[in-house]
Amino acid sequence: MTGVRSRQEKTIAAIGHIIMILAAALAIAPFWLLVSSSIQEESSIIRDGYSFLPKEVSFSAYQYLLGEWKQIGRAYFVTIFTTVIGTTLSLFLVSMTSYVLSIRDLPGRTFIFIAILLTMLINGGQVSMYITYTRIVDVRNTIFALLVPNLLLNGFNVMLVRNYVTNSIPRELQEAASIDGAGLFHIYIRIILPLSKPILATVGLLTALGYWNDWINGLYFVSDSKWYSIQLMLNQINSNASFLASHSDQLGQMANQIDIPTVAVRMAISVLVIIPIVLAYPFFQKYFTGGMMVGAVKG
């Protein structure tokens, strides 16, 4: 994209700026409100309502969480660990599977691809999934419990990457390499992987968020709370708080024994959940760079 840009190009870019600024404002305002309501004094919320600039600031929610730091720190570690390992494994599997399925004359490829697509439309439900991962492959209380069930690979990602490889990576490149005597695995490593960076960044982002936000696997397959992820903690606190609030009359005195976290604490935890992803996101963006085909074909 060299040379002088035409007036039209400049106009389109200007419209782009305006639209993106609007979208960014709409995205950031609620987040700001999220942060400010996590530091707003509870009685002030009830009296003055939520506001972007809280009149009475209180960091008690964060102090409360700081008190639980041992547990939260550990949960952070578990989440980051599973996200990094899981996403790496997943990208490897998804790209390899998708590449093979893009080989044009591979016998049985359509059948396999449809079988994979089918998994997006139907599933057996939680109970049979649980039984499979406890009776057939027992993942309980191992690291696999957090990595494997439902997160590692899915039909959607395979479809995305396969379509990209089929449509956007020139076939001539692969054929040329093949003629030079390169094996399939060699082509995969040398050509497919580097050239599918944009789609792998997309799929990687999707997968990483899947791992980051997952709490189901922890809930079902991990009984030791040492291995609880940050999302599982947040989810347990949130869902139980609202359950207890709506059953308080039945629970009676039992409910009163329980410290239900305040709204501010719940907000503070979700701030803590989001911040690391925001910080890590630029890392992904490195791979969102276009225009490398030219060099690849020529070289």
Partner: peptide, 29 residues
């Protein structure tokens, strides 16, 4: 074996469906 009150019923279904040994179930609501 502890379970949070919100998830209890669905967790029990999975445990019992999965044939896991549990001897006393505390059930609420």
């Amino acid at each position: 074996r502890q379970v949070s009150i919100f998830n209890a019923a669905s967790q029990y279904t999975m445990w019992i469906g999965g044939g896991e040994t549990v001897d006393l179930l505390t059930i609420a609501y």
